[in-house]
């Protein structure tokens, strides 16, 4: 009886112990890489959504039990300092949450949107991070692969690009006009609209909805803070 119960239990415990030990070592080994990678992502996104701004440290505020992260950036334009805000917001897409960073100026005009995390369906919703590609695979085979240096020049996916200049305080309309191109910009800006991803209305709506929600939270967060911590007077 004792041999039947104690011995297998001890074996299992020993194996579990060794496995955990091994894993904790692997975890220690990979942790810095995971952390660095996350930080790099955030820094890159900040550069994208607040171009030319010098951005301060991240500020955390808890809103209804959910953490809200935002940044305040400053830029000199014609001897005047203008402020810009960036925040991280999330919306429910089709395959889970879509997390994006949004940069706005003082009037609420969007300076840039960068989608940080998404798990949408490839070919449909996942096209929200797709870079408009004019070359096909055959062109690449014929002309050779271009040198892909992402750190130097990161091309902005078209879906995110079209948010630039949209007023985040007003209602953002969704139209169905296919893949966005720069020629469409003036027309879309006039109606404060964006072009939806074909076949992925839920994804599009989730991003728009999350921007609206993030704006509301940002305003609340800014009004909650005391004026003297606002980073100096104008």
């Amino acid at each position: 009886m004792i041999r039947d119960i104690v011995k297998p239990t001890l074996t299992l415990a020993a194996v579990a112990f060794i496995c955990t030990l091994l894993l904790s070592y692997v975890q220690k080994f990979t942790e810095p890489a995971i952390k660095r990678q996350k930080g790099e992502n955030q820094d890159e996104a900040l550069k994208l959504v607040l171009p030319g701004f010098s951005v301060g440290d991240a500020q955390k505020i808890s809103m209804a039990g959910v953490e809200f992260l935002f940044w305040i950036g400053k830029k000199k334009v014609d001897y005047k300092t203008v402020k810009g805000y960036a925040f991280i917001t999330a919306g429910a897409g089709y395959g889970g949450n879509i997390e994006s960073m949004v940069g706005v100026d003082e009037s609420g005009k969007i300076l840039g949107v960068s989608i940080l995390n998404q798990s949408e369906t490839p070919g449909l919703g996942a096209r929200c991070v797709e870079v408009a590609n004019r070359e096909t695979l055959w062109d690449y085979i014929k002309n050779g692969m271009p040198a892909r240096d992402y750190n130097k020049e990161r091309r902005i996916p078209w879906f995110q690009n079209q948010f630039e200049g949209i007023d985040a305080n007003a209602e953002v309309r969704i139209t169905r006009r296919g893949v966005w191109n720069p020629e469409m910009r003036p027309q879309l800006l006039e109606t404060n609209a964006i072009s939806a991803l074909t076949g992925a209305t839920i994804t599009t709506a989730a991003v728009v909805q999350s921007i609206r929600l993030g704006m509301t939270t940002l305003k609340k967060a800014l009004s909650m803070r005391l004026p003297d911590t606002d980073g100096g007077a104008q």
Binding site: P8, T11, V15, L22, V26, T30, I34
Partner: peptide
């Protein structure tokens, strides 16, 4: 041992899976 072998195998498999998981994440 025969009657505790399944949890034993699961533990071993889960360990290797976690190694893959952490390395891919990093």
């Amino acid at each position: 041992h025969s009657h505790l072998r399944i949890p034993l195998y699961i533990t071993i498999i889960a360990t290797f899976v976690t190694i893959v998981d952490l390395s891919l994440n990093a």
